[in-house]
Simulated assay, not measured.
Amino acid sequence: MTRTTGGSPKARIVGAELRRAREEHDVGVRELARRLGMDHSKLSRCESGKTAASPEFVASVLAALGVPEAERERVIELARGADRTNWLSPGLPSADHELTTLIEFEKTASEITEVSPFVISGLLQTSNYARAVMTSGTESPGDLETRVTLRVGRRDVLTRKKGPRFTFLVMETALRTKIGGPVVMADQLRQVVTMSEWPSVTVRVIPADLNIWHPALHGSYILFEFPKADPIVHLEQYASAVFLHEREQTDAYRSATDTLRGLAMSPDDSVKLIAEVAEEMENMT
């Protein structure tokens, strides 16, 4: 029925789906456990992702809640392989399922560190910048706007009273890449400056003139750290996303993050540079 995972990425997302379905149907944990003929603590462990729910178990839970068949099948399919430590999520990085996965980790993390060589973090993006990043030419305008709204809405987690602390380590290259054009980019950089003043947000720039090879040159990643669960690392690739959970791997990214903190400019100097680049963009128009 279930298997202990220690909170693997996919098990946590399946658990979140089960919890969301239960809450949407206004059923308590104990009542649902009674319907299933099981101890409520087992159900709680599945909802937290500490125990991976099998597809069969997911099917029984959702059936007991009266979830429609199409939605049941979606979550059942998601549950396949939930006991694996790491998770390769197929589909383009802008896909809805990956955004909702990131939102779940952002909601439950105590600290988030994002490293980006080329793009401004999704948590800090303006609508116009997000639209420029996410446009592929294959989606309908309605689908694109839905994804833009979902991405921009992610920043709300940074204003929650017990929300995560967010550190953005960005290469100077990303500041000077005019995604969407100078006007869009200038507005985006001004927003980064504004959001850097939020108590939960720290922005630090990795200078472009470093004469050494450093971890950010290997690509972007997000390190999620949780109060009661092991860290998760998210890697965004062109046609898929990877969520890493094995201790050896997450420790390597923690070490890489420490290295980049040592190379990055101070928060004050970083914000000053970002404002200067924004002014340069504005003068191009």
Rank of each mutant, 00 (worst) to 15 (best):
T100L: 11
T138N: 08
R84N: 08
L102S: 13
G122N: 06
N86E: 12
N86M: 01
P93F: 04
D83R: 11
S116W: 00
R131V: 00
I120C: 13
A130M: 10
P141D: 04
A132Q: 05
T135N: 07
E139M: 13
S89T: 05
L102H: 02
S136P: 00
E98A: 04
T113W: 01
L88N: 08
F118A: 13
R131A: 11
S127W: 02
L102F: 03
T100N: 09
S140V: 00
S116V: 02
S140N: 00
S136M: 04
R131M: 02
P90C: 06
L78G: 03
I112G: 07
L92N: 12
Y129F: 15
T101K: 05
L102G: 14
I112W: 07
A130G: 08
V119A: 04
G81Y: 08
T108C: 10
W87G: 12
E104R: 08
R80P: 01
G81P: 05
S140F: 02
E139Y: 01
L102P: 06
T126Y: 03
F118L: 15
T138S: 13
M134W: 01
L78K: 05
S136V: 07
R80E: 14
N86V: 01
K107C: 09
E111K: 10
E98W: 12
A79R: 10
L92G: 15
R80M: 12
A95C: 09
E98R: 15
V115A: 09
T135D: 10
M134T: 00
M134C: 02
R131E: 15
L99D: 03
D96V: 13
T113L: 03
W87Q: 05
T138Q: 12
E106R: 05
A95R: 12
Q125Y: 01
V133F: 02
Y129N: 11
S110R: 14
L78S: 05
S110A: 15
R84P: 01
P90L: 09
N86T: 03
G81M: 10
N128V: 09
L123G: 10
G137M: 01
S89N: 05
T138F: 14
L92M: 14
L78N: 05
S127I: 00
H97S: 06
L78M: 13
T138D: 12
T138R: 14
L78W: 03
I103V: 11
V119I: 15
L92C: 07
S140I: 01
L124I: 08
E139D: 14
R80T: 14
V133C: 11
S116E: 12
P117Q: 02
E114S: 13
R84H: 14
Q125L: 08
P90H: 07
A79V: 06
F105W: 11
Q125E: 11
L124T: 06
D83Q: 15
L78E: 01
T101D: 09
A82I: 03
V119T: 14
R80D: 14
A109P: 03
E106A: 15
G122C: 08
A109D: 07
T101L: 06
G142F: 00
A79I: 08
H97N: 05
L88F: 12
P90W: 06
A79T: 05
S136T: 15
T138E: 15
E139P: 00
G122I: 06
G91E: 10
S127F: 00
P117N: 07
W87C: 09
P117S: 06
E111C: 01
